[in-house]
Amino acid sequence: MKICVYGAGAIGAYMGAQLALAGADVSFIARGPHLAAMQKNGVRLQTEEGERVVNVRCTSDPRELGEQDYVIVALKAHSVPGVVDAMQPLLGANTAIVTAINGIPYWYFYRHGGVFAGTMLDSVDPGGTQWKRLGPERAIGCVLYPAAEIVEPGVVRHVYGKKFPIGEPSGEKTERILALQEMMVAAGFDAPIRDDIRDEIWLKLWGNLCFNPISALTHATLDVITSDSGTRAVSRTMMLEAKSIADRFGVHFRVDVERRIDGAGAVGAHKTSMLQDLECGRPMEIDPLLTVVQEMGRLVGQATPIIDTVLALIKLREQTAQHALAQTEARTASQSPGVTQGARAA
């Protein structure tokens, strides 16, 4: 089984390394110092069982790898539209695309049924690029519950969790999803096949859409957000707004709001991915987690006043953070040795 992990960051490298250890023919698409370290030394995977070095083929150029059986897309969701063209050499007639991303995926309304079947969501798939170039028929949903981190380039630590629910948009148990499940189980993952993977996507999104932006705005960890009366109330209201929308699309939540909030709080003093991105100067996953919920609300005429408010705040927070970063980089460049006073003035 040939599997390419497109975006072998922390969670992608963890998944790929475990799959390689289970016998899959795994390759990684990565970049920067992390790619260079993995090419030189392999992936140093740290788990509760200890540390292992896993050697997989690593490159920044998909053209070197050829057609795959599965492409696991483990990029931040907002990065995917920009690599659709680069992914094409990986795609054969029967290649499946496993969307291991946070938020609503591009294929959400494929084989959805009802009046919205076939709808493309501009907030996560601008211009329908993924729908048209990757194809919704290739898609298999995958929800990420584990956490991993890059300790240093080439070194990935598994923090907690092994659960990766998967599912076909149609809910069928196809040969390709059964084969994928078999390989994921061999890799040590809990990979249940869901009859409606959209329910699982919304359950994960339910927390991400509130906890992530609130953490980035306040710099608070999950335990604080869920125990503080004010931020807990904001989270609850955002989640209820989202549930009103999801209900209109036939989504079933197997837990209630309070239990979902308590579950997040039980994780402890954890920084959300959005807060980590903010602190590292990276773009944040705003559109796949918040803007898309706003867009889906407008499809059914459902108002989202609190989500709209938090969305406006987090978008401005990102703009100010990126502006500050650009100013810092400009000052550093102007003060670098060898830059003349005349060049600074210019």
Rank of each mutant, 00 (worst) to 15 (best):
I261C: 13
I261E: 03
I261A: 13
G263Y: 04
G265N: 11
G265S: 12
G265T: 08
G265W: 02
A266N: 15
A266I: 07
A266E: 14
V267G: 10
V267P: 11
G268C: 07
G268L: 08
A269T: 12
H270G: 14
H270V: 09
K271V: 05
K271T: 05
M274S: 09
L275R: 10
L275S: 02
L275M: 10
Q276R: 05
L278A: 02
L278K: 03
L278W: 00
E279N: 08
C280L: 08
C280P: 04
G281P: 12
G281F: 01
G281K: 05
R282F: 04
R282I: 01
P283E: 01
M284V: 01
E285Q: 08
E285Y: 01
I286R: 05
I286W: 02
I286A: 11
I286V: 11
D287A: 14
D287K: 07
D287L: 00
L289M: 11
L289S: 14
L290H: 10
L290Y: 02
L290K: 02
T291N: 13
T291R: 03
V293C: 12
V293S: 04
V293Q: 04
Q294M: 06
E295G: 10
E295K: 05
E295P: 10
M296E: 06
M296I: 01
G297N: 03
G297Y: 02
L299F: 02
L299C: 07
L299N: 06
V300D: 10
V300L: 03
V300H: 04
V300E: 05
G301E: 06
Q302M: 09
Q302D: 07
A303M: 05
T304K: 01
P305C: 10
I306N: 02
I306F: 06
I306T: 15
I307Q: 14
I307R: 08
D308I: 02
D308G: 14
D308F: 00
D308E: 13
D308Q: 06
D308L: 04
T309N: 13
T309V: 08
T309P: 06
V310A: 05
V310P: 04
L311S: 09
L313H: 12
L313D: 09
I314M: 11
K315S: 09
L316W: 03
L316N: 13
E318W: 01
Q319V: 08
Q319Y: 05
T320Y: 06
T320R: 11
A321N: 12
Q322L: 07
H323K: 07
A324V: 00
A324M: 04
A324R: 09
L325D: 12
L325Q: 15
L325E: 11
A326T: 07
A326G: 13
A326K: 07
Q327L: 09
Q327G: 14
T328L: 11
E329V: 08
E329C: 12
E329A: 15
A330Q: 13
A330T: 12
A330G: 12
A330N: 11
R331Y: 09
R331T: 13
T332G: 15
T332K: 15
